[in-house]
Design a binder for these strands. Sequence first.
DNA 1: GATGAATGAGTGTTCATTCAT
DNA 2: AATGAATGAACACTCATTCAT
Lengths: 206, 206, 206, 206
Amino acid sequence: MKNDNETREKLLSCAKEEFMEKGFQNASLRQICSKAGVTTGAVYFFFKDKDGLFSALVEPTYQGVLGALIHHLQEDMEEDLAQYVHKPGDHDPFVEELIHVLYQNHDAVTLLISKSTGSKYEHVVDEFIEMIEKNFMGLAENYAKSVPGKQLNRPMVHWLSHLSIMTFVHLLTHVKDEKKALRFMKPAMEHLILGWMNFILEDKDK
Amino acid sequence: MKNDNETREKLLSCAKEEFMEKGFQNASLRQICSKAGVTTGAVYFFFKDKDGLFSALVEPTYQGVLGALIHHLQEDMEEDLAQYVHKPGDHDPFVEELIHVLYQNHDAVTLLISKSTGSKYEHVVDEFIEMIEKNFMGLAENYAKSVPGKQLNRPMVHWLSHLSIMTFVHLLTHVKDEKKALRFMKPAMEHLILGWMNFILEDKDK
Amino acid sequence: MKNDNETREKLLSCAKEEFMEKGFQNASLRQICSKAGVTTGAVYFFFKDKDGLFSALVEPTYQGVLGALIHHLQEDMEEDLAQYVHKPGDHDPFVEELIHVLYQNHDAVTLLISKSTGSKYEHVVDEFIEMIEKNFMGLAENYAKSVPGKQLNRPMVHWLSHLSIMTFVHLLTHVKDEKKALRFMKPAMEHLILGWMNFILEDKDK
Amino acid sequence: MKNDNETREKLLSCAKEEFMEKGFQNASLRQICSKAGVTTGAVYFFFKDKDGLFSALVEPTYQGVLGALIHHLQEDMEEDLAQYVHKPGDHDPFVEELIHVLYQNHDAVTLLISKSTGSKYEHVVDEFIEMIEKNFMGLAENYAKSVPGKQLNRPMVHWLSHLSIMTFVHLLTHVKDEKKALRFMKPAMEHLILGWMNFILEDKDK
DNA sequence: GATGAATGAGTGTTCATTCAT
DNA sequence: AATGAATGAACACTCATTCAT
């Protein structure tokens, strides 16, 4: 009837509003539909269910971020922490890339990481943390073996992994502008790196 | 008449279980009451409403933590960052005190910080962050003025304030034992202090 | 344009599947159409409505069975029960004919008699029962008059009519092969005839 | 509030009406509640769900009938078909007992056997058939072994089992009065017995 | 010849809350 | 001191059906 998916788009934008305001769980399909001027049945023509409507808003972005993360982690796996020398100054290209992806899809990313409770994406942040933790734990283990009298402080590796992700989450929820984000991220990343360099080892038999 | 509020205690312990398992929002009063072997009306005799039941579980702990925090912040306010010298080694007494309070009331604190969505405590973590941010911002402003060619990096102060709180949150949700918590907190706090010392200033006119 | 009503045929075969599986009432047009790879609107192009779709599957068969039944009943009406002698051995030609019709259209008949709840055919079995009951009741009344001291046991005539139909229904739902059906039907029909011969009269003034 | 479960009773009687009229599946809880003058929530105070409401109406009767059936089957198991002599005249005491149970709970039995589609009782008739079939099949097998040149006609045993149950079902739906039921059942049962005696064996290698 | 879009009425179910007793 | 009864509003979801194009 309507040309060019007008209703679908309206539905998506009203859904985004509602999800942003109340989160997935507290969002009401009735509310979304009445805002969009359609009946609840319409949602089920375009989407499988409430989760499907949410997915339509965040899935591509989820895939994008996931892809960027995987790409980065694969590069990192060839790193040798013992040889690592941090050059202060500009960002790691990956960080810039990631921030770019994040800010290009600011709303979707926000939905994904802070409005998804109750949806199938509710553990997305934990997934990401787990991914980078696995990666870093591997690198750190090798590094630890090469340092006599020291052993890996695993809880610290977990915490720094957690922190790495939370830094980005915080960024998104507190800095709206991409340029400001890049500026903010410089000291934040350096701080993070200080953590990786100084605190992942502890004295043996502690 | 049951002696000594037996019902009230049963209700509280079943509520704690349910809130722990599902969070405030997804917890069902019906469920809590049937576990406790009473009718839903009973809740409304002892407590104002669902929020009141939750409060009964967390309010004293909330006040305790809040008090400890305020106490610490007041001490801190007399600090002069320019003079601050970090002595690595043992913990700041305040940190030990706080960890102690936190672990003495582990369940209640957990409810407060990670199971309170939907209740009146849902912004408790943000409150704490705001409090320490205000405090630190004041100190940091004075400090910044005393360093020529530099200015305060406010977003960084905010982030470090956030981080200070999140460190404790992470601690509670990942380390169950108080002794292990103390051990974990040493490098974590040192990392935090590195942040405060190195990254809250930036070049002017940036 | 698809040649030769390809879509219509697809729709019919998918509908048959769905109706067979779930019965008329629980069948979903959505499901049928998605199986058939068309949209729900298509149904309404080819058929009047859900009932019309079902009709298209069963109406010819319904007419066939109805015709065979009427034909048989007309022959029966000339029968004189008092003169009737049962010759055991082969089937009544009508029974063979009916079984043949039934098994030639096994699926449609099944839909008609056991999957039609909710459709306009839902009382088809009752209709058939009523038809043969009327017929037999007439014959039996005449017969009863000719036997002194006896009267017609009407409920028994109704029950035997019911049974006559139910025998075929049971046959269809339990015996898949026509040859086995013919074999099964021999003792079943003889049993039925024993009923007609021995139990439709009762002592007067009972 | 209301004394003595007034609402519960009202709900049950309105539910019975609705289930009787439309069957379990097509019955609407909203309709039942509005007839009863309460809100839908009330149903869920007294019953677990729609199925629970239906159960409250039929479960005791189901248990009663099941019990009577089991009791009867255990007696039957000591029977020896080869020695069986049928004495026409009065009913088997069990038949009288069963008819009595059935007519004492006429409505509930009707719900159970012809209005239960969609509920957990929807296969109750099939269950009963299966029970008596198993029983009879055992007896008939022994009997068949004792007759040379003959073998068991299993489909016929199944059909007669089916018939035994269907006779009672038919009775309930067509004869409202218990006395009339007893009268009707005499020839019907004799007919059934003729079946068991004459048609469960067939020539070997058929 | 059939689609794509949408309706409108309906479903069973769950919830926190109330209040007379 | 607490129950038993009930409310009323909300929920996600499914359905057969319609009709302009």
